[in-house]
């Protein structure tokens, strides 16, 4: 099959003052594309041709190409990871497009995800949020017996729904406000349903939301584009859970002077 691609090309890293730099959409014609190629393989073929012509290949992120690592991800025709639901870009195949299709390929667009080059964005803002509390801070020691802490099936399922997040950033890219609330909600939800996570639930909710706000993500307006774009189909329920956890954590927060006193007398 034959496709016409419009790809965002940007040679310099985005800065706060100049986000787009020299970025622009460039048109490429590509013939002899197999319907069985993945979207990334199609880009590989394009890059081969560009290299043969002595041009710069298109930079894009990828790693496992099995849909589990969260590295890949481009916005295809305005939709992160392209037209198929619950699918990463690497698992999207060219059979999802018509022969002769015009395809727009852009990087995730968010202030918190500066473009490094072409389709590659810097997602370390996610890492900084995770570092603020999307973990359990206990000395775990030797592995515990698997069923030492009983977790009801329903809770385990809820936690696992959120734990499937691969941190790709499609939720931010899809959101009309570039909000990261599905990602951060997934972290909150992941831990709030487990007994090990409940110990630090208030601190976690406060710290994660504060970290998210610092990174310059937008605010959720409950349009649910994130849920539809998420390759792991994480539900917007996790955002409601985060809202609840955050309000609760704020309501029970102790004044700074009272922290860590370990009770009275």
């Amino acid at each position: 099959m034959k496709v016409t691609l419009h790809i965002w090309r940007q040679s310099r890293q985005s800065t706060k003052g100049d986000f787009a730099q020299d970025g622009r959409m460039v048109r490429y014609e590509l013939d002899h594309v197999s319907a069985d190629m993945s979207f990334l393989e199609m880009l590989d073929v394009l890059n081969e041709q560009l290299i043969h012509k002595g041009e710069e290949p298109v930079a894009f992120d990828h790693d496992c190409r099995e849909g589990i690592c969260g590295s890949c991800g481009v916005v295809i025709d305005g939709v992160p990871h392209g037209p198929e639901r619950g699918t990463t870009t690497c698992q999207l195949h060219m059979r999802s497009f018509k022969d002769g299709a015009e395809i727009w390929v852009e990087p995730w667009r968010a202030a918190a995800f500066p473009v490094v080059r072409d389709l590659v964005v810097d997602r370390s803002s996610f890492d900084r949020v995770v570092q603020k509390g999307a973990f359990i801070s206990v000395g775990t020691g030797a592995p515990q017996d698997a069923n030492a802490i009983p977790v009801p099936k329903h809770d385990a399922d809820r936690a696992f729904d959120a734990a499937t997040c691969i941190g790709c950033g499609a939720c931010v890219a899809a959101c009309k406000n570039a909000s990261a609330m599905l990602f951060v909600g997934a972290k909150v939800s992941h831990f709030m349903h487990l007994p090990q996570g409940r110990v630090e639930r208030e601190q976690r909710a406060r710290d994660l939301v504060a970290a998210m706000d610092r990174e310059g993500f937008g605010n959720c307006t409950n349009q649910y584009e994130c849920e539809a774009a998420c390759p792991k189909e994480i539900p917007v329920r996790v955002i409601a859970e985060m809202n609840r956890e955050f309000v609760r954590a704020k309501a029970v927060e102790e004044p700074a002077s009272d922290k860590g006193t370990g009770g009275h007398g």
């Binding site: 419009h6 965002w8 986000f19 787009a20 970025g23 959409m25 916005v75 025709d77 305005g78 939709v79 727009w104 852009e106 667009r109 968010a110 202030a111 918190a112 899809a174 009309k176 406000n177 570039a178 909000s179 310059g216 993500f217 937008g218 605010n219 307006t221 409950n222 349009q223 649910y224 584009e225 849920e227 539809a228 774009a229």
Partner: peptide, 28 residues
């Protein structure tokens, strides 16, 4: 909030698309 949301996406998509957001939600 609307101003913060605008600032959160400095460069708009060349090709805009909506998956499931309602018209009402987009015009709030």
């Amino acid at each position: 909030l609307a101003r913060a949301n605008k600032a959160a996406r400095p460069v708009a998509y060349a090709k805009e698309a909506t998956i499931q957001a309602s018209f009402a939600s987009r015009s709030m």
